[in-house]
């Protein structure tokens, strides 16, 4: 059993390494094709990223984005899970409100940004709000579907055991729905990050989004590539971590 799982784990790492190698080769090929007017090679990007990370002016921007993103994600998760659970356990409410959520989700969020700026002003609050509205609806929709899809026999078992609403949610609904909720959290995580960065790109004086917009204006390909590389690394690692946690905690076999 151990030998098998260790063999399986090694095969998984080997596949991941092969995928990374393939992506680097494609990146290198693309950089050669489009030239240095638009891209940098992986080696150039990594070297510049290392320099950027040692520059003292970079860290306040990262901290600003981190703070805004952390708050936006917290709000998106808490509000999204609450909406998802409330609608998921109430069939009538979910039948009525799910189409409304989907309609809201299909609105291009950027059209709401001027309104958010007027509401919250130029600062971290507007970025947090913009990040939150990107992440909250997918988390709510995934949670709603996950709770509604919990096998009825689990709920019946909970009722037979005389569990109240709180224990039913914490003991049965939440763990049973968790694999799908994790998918929602992964999507919500990425969209909240996009929302926060977009907020910084369009109306901000600090943060990675602001740095990116500035670099675009100055045609600084090195900064654009390094920031994109860092964001991909961060989003990819977080998504991988959530996937790992989900498997570890709820899909034990």
């Amino acid at each position: 059993m151990n030998a098998t799982s260790s063999g399986g784990s090694n095969a998984g790492w080997f596949s991941a390494l092969k995928l990374i190698a393939l992506l680097l080769v494609l990146w290198q090929a693309l950089a050669w094709m489009v030239g240095d007017v638009a891209m940098r090679t992986p080696l150039q990007t990594m070297t510049f990223t290392a320099n950027l990370l040692t520059s003292p002016s970079f860290w306040p921007h990262l901290a600003e984005t981190g703070r805004a993103f952390g708050l936006a994600l917290l709000l998106a998760v808490v509000i999204g899970l609450a909406i998802g659970f409330l609608l998921g356990i109430n069939r009538f409410a979910s039948d009525v409100l799910e189409p409304v959520l989907v309609a809201l989700y299909s609105i291009p969020k950027i059209t709401l940004y001027p309104i958010l700026l007027l509401m919250f002003g130029l600062g971290v609050a507007a970025k947090v709000a913009f990040g939150t509205i990107h992440g909250v609806i997918p988390i709510a929709l995934f949670t709603l579907a996950a709770v509604r899809n919990v096998r009825p026999v689990f709920v019946k078992t909970g009722r037979v055991m005389g569990l109240g609403t709180g224990r039913m949610i914490s003991g049965i609904l939440l763990p049973a729905a968790m694999p799908e909720i994790f998918t929602g959290l992964r999507v919500g995580f990425s969209l909240t990050l996009i929302g926060t960065l977009l907020g910084e790109m369009f109306a901000s004086q600090r943060g990675l989004g602001f740095m990116l917009m500035n670099a675009i204006g100055l045609h600084n390909v090195d900064v654009i590539m390094a920031l994109t590389f860092l964001l991909v690394l961060f989003a990819g690692s977080a998504s991988g971590l959530l996937l790992f946690l989900n498997r570890r905690l709820y899909q034990r076999a």
């Binding site: 096998r151 026999v153 078992t157 049965i172 763990p175 049973a176 899909q251």
Partner: peptide
């Protein structure tokens, strides 16, 4: 139906 909880 199988009502054993797969997460436990």
């Amino acid at each position: 139906e199988d009502a054993s909880f797969p997460w436990l």
